[in-house]
């Protein structure tokens, strides 16, 4: 299959790659660019483990074609911490033991950040519905929800 050349921006950096038409953005991130923080749990948009931001909107990278990323802006889990400082959500996930196996964690963090960027003071119900597209099989969600709420409180305090 012939490949298409794509120029895009990932976590603020200009990136170029070649991809086949049927490769997803997730395939490109993981297999071509070695950005393996985004995980593939289903490949059908049902688990949220590949959550990334595409031009400021939360999407599943498995439901975006690699060729669609031309001239877009993509943000992944790899861009969430700044330097040696974790994002408050990352820190709260650790403090609340909000991960057990950790495979869903990058997706939850990207999705939760998108929520707090849009709604800094969500209710528990809002957090639960916003994150309904992110499956976690280990935690029963309890500690994840608490971590997001706590991060929101801390981030409001900083703002």
């Amino acid at each position: 299959m012939t490949q298409t050349h794509v120029s895009t921006t990932i976590n603020g950096d200009k990136v170029e790659y070649l991809c086949e038409t049927d490769e997803t953005l997730l395939d490109v991130l993981r297999d071509t660019l070695s950005l393996t923080g985004s995980k593939e749990g289903c490949g059908s948009g049902d688990c949220g483990a590949c959550s990334v931001m595409l031009d400021g909107r939360l999407v599943c990278a498995c439901l975006v074609l690699g060729v669609e990323a031309q001239d877009r802006k993509i943000e992944t889990i790899e861009g969430m911490a700044s330097g040696d400082e974790l994002h408050p959500l990352q820190q709260k996930f650790l403090e609340h033991a909000a991960l057990q196996c950790g495979i869903c964690t990058p997706g939850f963090l990207v999705a939760a950040k998108a929520l707090l960027d849009e709604n800094p003071d969500p209710t528990e119900t809002e957090v639960r519905y916003w994150l309904a597209g992110n499956l976690c099989r280990c935690t029963g969600y309890d500690k994840i929800i608490r971590a997001v709420m706590d991060a929101a409180t801390e981030m409001r305090g900083q703002a």
Partner: peptide, 16 residues
């Protein structure tokens, strides 16, 4: 923990 919240932890499909 930090490896897992930053996406750096290597799971089964993450090695090439």
């Amino acid at each position: 923990g930090v490896e897992k919240v930053t996406g750096r932890a290597k799971f089964g499909a993450d090695l090439s």
